[in-house]
Amino acid sequence: MNRQRALAVTAAGAIATALTLAAGAAPASAEILDAKAEAARADLTGNVSQGVIDELQETFGLTEAEAYDRLAVEDVAADLLEEVPADLDESYAGLWVSEDADEIFVATTDASDTAGLRAEGATPVLVEHDLAALEDAAAAVAPISMEGYYGNYVDVVANTLVIETADAATAADLIEASGIDPSLVTVDAEAEAPQTYFVRGGDSYIVENSWRCSVGFSVRQGSTPGFVTAGHCGSAGDQVTSGEAAPGTFRNSVFPSSDRAWVAVGSGETLYDDVNMYSGTRDVANATQAAVGSSICRSGSTTGWHCGTVQAFNQTVRYAEGAVYGMTRTNVCAEPGDSGGSFISGNSAQGMTSGGSGNCSSGGTTYFQPIGPALSAWGLTLVTT
């Protein structure tokens, strides 16, 4: 793969310097990443549908070969995302895929981690704040209810906690009320108020003959079939009365705080191990978490299939109905009625559409509820290929 090395990453209140070798020397991490990606690509060849390759080409302006290169690097990043945080422990500050998906960065507060990270194929980045410190600050801010406060998330690339508010004064009040160190914070004082993507009649599934949402993924609880979706789509006991999905009953639902639910359907209903792309289908193979910067796509009954990238984990979103924690932030668009729909990266289920801002005409930000908490909390098994 053809690489250009990033020399520095900077942000207000953060020092983030890429730890590169002497000028003219190719970092060992690049060679190792190339080898790992080549092995991953060999596994991907023949196991990725042409639809996946076509959408990556269209979304990111890639050739077919470059689309396979991107998937291979993202596959390596997903493996490192499971391994590196435990290896670095207190010094770990985040992992992300570069914009062109030709490099994997790992941030650390300890320069002695450099050699080990390079040996894994990652490019080390020295930063000021470890991830735990930023997440602790996020946890201190998240529960505060204040008009004009829309949410927060940790931006691992910029090594900062981003607070989203209607204006700078609200952000200042919020920082003071939470007692966090202002040097950890970057303020987005022009954020749009998020809304849950809800209902206006039509396709997918209808709850209580009144509002529409979208199916996330097929699941089973023991021998009981069903699907996961967004919690704000229905409360426990609500009925799915019509639409494309089989009739069923909301067994469990959490909203706000989280935004997850599962619907049980009849024992004779068929569960499909794929996602509607509105131009075909996408197989679901597993629920491996994709790294920040990875490509990701969303399916929903209002706007169909749209793609983009993962921007951040553990986003706090403050809807009018209350705060929701632990969301994943993306730049994929969505609109009302897409709620509950599938977020998938490659063939890995990621989560269920929650809400956001903007639309699919002008673009926007969309948050999804990671699927893991729903599966573990309710003993659900994802239906896969």
Rank of each mutant, 00 (worst) to 15 (best):
Q239E: 09
D203N: 15
T109M: 03
T170F: 07
V310D: 11
V215A: 06
G266C: 02
M327K: 04
V52S: 02
E269L: 01
T10D: 14
G322N: 06
P225Q: 04
N2S: 13
L380Q: 13
A158S: 10
A42R: 13
P27Y: 03
E120M: 15
A140K: 14
A25T: 12
Q4M: 14
A30C: 02
A230V: 04
D43S: 04
G293F: 11
Q289V: 15
T17G: 14
T59Y: 00
L56C: 00
V48T: 03
G94P: 03
D87S: 15
S295E: 00
G341W: 04
I296F: 04
D43F: 02
Q50G: 01
A67F: 04
A377Q: 12
S223R: 12
T281C: 00
S257G: 02
G300Y: 07
R251Q: 10
R118L: 07
A30W: 15
V240G: 02
G46Y: 03
A122R: 10
R251N: 08
P27L: 06
Y149F: 15
N159Y: 07
V215M: 08
P194Y: 06
T224C: 03
G364M: 07
S348Q: 05
W378P: 13
N152M: 06
S257D: 08
Y325D: 08
L95V: 02
L126K: 13
G234Y: 10
A111I: 11
A86V: 14
T366Q: 06
D100Y: 01
V265T: 15
F227S: 06
G379H: 11
V9H: 11
L161N: 02
V162F: 03
T224R: 15
A230E: 06
P27V: 01
P194E: 11
V199I: 14
V185W: 03
S253E: 11
F105V: 10
T186S: 10
E55P: 00
A119T: 10
V254M: 10
A374G: 09
I344L: 04
I15H: 05
A230C: 09
P124D: 10
F198S: 14
V240K: 12
G346R: 00
G372M: 11
S257C: 00
A264L: 08
I163C: 02
T45P: 00
F255H: 14
R318W: 13
G148S: 11
C333W: 01
D113V: 11
A374S: 07
F198W: 11
H306P: 01
Y92N: 08
Y367E: 10
I175N: 12
D110E: 11
G51L: 03
L7A: 14
A139S: 12
R212H: 09
G116W: 05
A285P: 02
I175F: 08
E90P: 00
Y197A: 03
S49V: 01
D113P: 03
E190K: 09
D238G: 02
S204I: 07
Y278A: 12
E321L: 05
N359E: 06
Y272E: 09
E192N: 12
G13W: 06
V228M: 01
L88A: 07
G372I: 05
A14V: 05
T309N: 09
Y92F: 15
L126R: 05
G216T: 10
S376Q: 15
E103S: 13
V48K: 01
S98T: 14
A119E: 14
T186Y: 07
A290E: 06
E164H: 04
E208R: 14
V383E: 04
V215R: 06
R118G: 08
E55N: 01
Y153F: 15
A137N: 09
